[in-house]
Design a protein around this nucleic acid. Structure first.
Lengths: 196, 196
DNA sequence: AAGAGTATGTCACTCGGTGACACTAAAGGC
DNA sequence: GCCTTTAGTGTCACCGAGTGACATACTCTT
């Protein structure tokens, strides 16, 4: 087994990410070049890109099978459960990690205020949404057409986004779980004549 | 008045955009360099960037005061109207232009399949959403807190996104207006205890 | 100690985008 | 008609994010 190299590599990544985050917080994301980070970490730019495929990826952790995990939990919900309820429960559980990464106030602010990072967030969320939509439709007897599945997952994404924004606005003092419940309650769809 | 130069400039932009769109459709967005486009149009790369601030902007028309126009229409809705209904009416009207530009199937497909263009779309929508949220809250007696306004506008954005996606899935045959109504009906929020 | 595999540095390159400077041609005033 | 602006353009040099190729050094195994 080859766990050691993997572990040292992971340690290096963590170290590098920590350093980069500090520099971003100081000077801003766009004002910090990859070369700056690399040299501060005592390595060449080329080596930096061997640890992270892009500058943005320093912030958004590493690989994410997050989508697959979430989709799995969706599939594991009780048969016949209202899809909106499934989304509320499962996405509520993963809420922090879904919006961007799992980080705290400062990092979220950095993301929020940097267009390229916001773009990356959307991209990640898009992929996740698609996986969740597929998972929802894949449940036996779900009766969801593609349009409705897309709509529900998009709406759920909107809810999470709003929660994140509100949490930011409250300087991290708001109760995220409560906000999630509130958002999902407000948007609870009227599925009466679509799914019977 | 200086209308002539403005008009020739606009004509040039249109010409350039048309050419670029064709090239993108052929080879793909990322596979077509700015230099390719410029040389095909008989100009230098530098000159291209004097007509469009970025490669992406070739696709997303020019300047958009779209947000301001939409916000204005929101403010112009009858006093006391249910905010969700205001969104449905006004955004339904602007639906085509909001999602990306006002273009047709091929362009929308190009956008959908190119990450950097999707990112741009999100960015544009974000700005618009913020303006609409402000407009909603600014109405006399709206009684909307920031969280709810964000949630409603985000949900409305989700609805439009879903409509666009479904329209794409239908190869442009679906009735967009009907889809908008369906999406807004499904997500109609329960504002009972938030706004009275 | 030899050989395999991995990490790293260096160099050169692409592509999007920008600043600086020079040149051309058309407009406008006299 | 000439002279001065000035918009439009080309050229050149540059930056920053990536990427491919190649050489070197380290480390682990046998």
């Amino acid at each position: 087994m080859d766990g050691l190299r993997e572990r040292t590599r992971q340690a290096m990544r963590d170290e590098l990410a920590k350093l980069a985050l500090r520099m971003f917080a100081d000077r801003g994301f766009d004002e910090t070049t990859v070369d700056d980070i690399a040299r501060a970490a005592g390595m060449s730019k080329r080596t930096f890109f061997r640890y992270f495929p892009s500058k943005e990826d320093v912030i958004f952790g590493g690989v994410d099978d997050l989508g697959e995990q979430v989709a799995e939990e969706i599939r594991a919900r009780p048969a016949g459960e209202d899809p909106w309820e499934s989304l509320r429960v499962v996405l509520g559980r993963w809420e922090r990690r879904i919006h961007a990464s799992q980080r705290e106030l400062a990092d979220l602010r950095l993301i929020e205020s940097t267009p390229s990072l916001r773009a990356r967030t959307h991209q990640r969320r898009d992929r996740l949404r698609q996986q969740v939509a597929d998972a929802l439709r894949g449940r036996p007897g779900s009766g969801l057409d593609a349009f409705t599945a897309d709509l529900l997952t998009n709406a759920a994404g909107a809810a999470l986004d709003t929660v994140s924004r509100e949490w930011l606005r409250s300087d991290g003092t708001a109760d995220r779980a409560a906000l999630v419940d509130r958002a999902f309650a407000l948007l609870k769809p009227d599925l009466g004549d679509t799914v019977r």
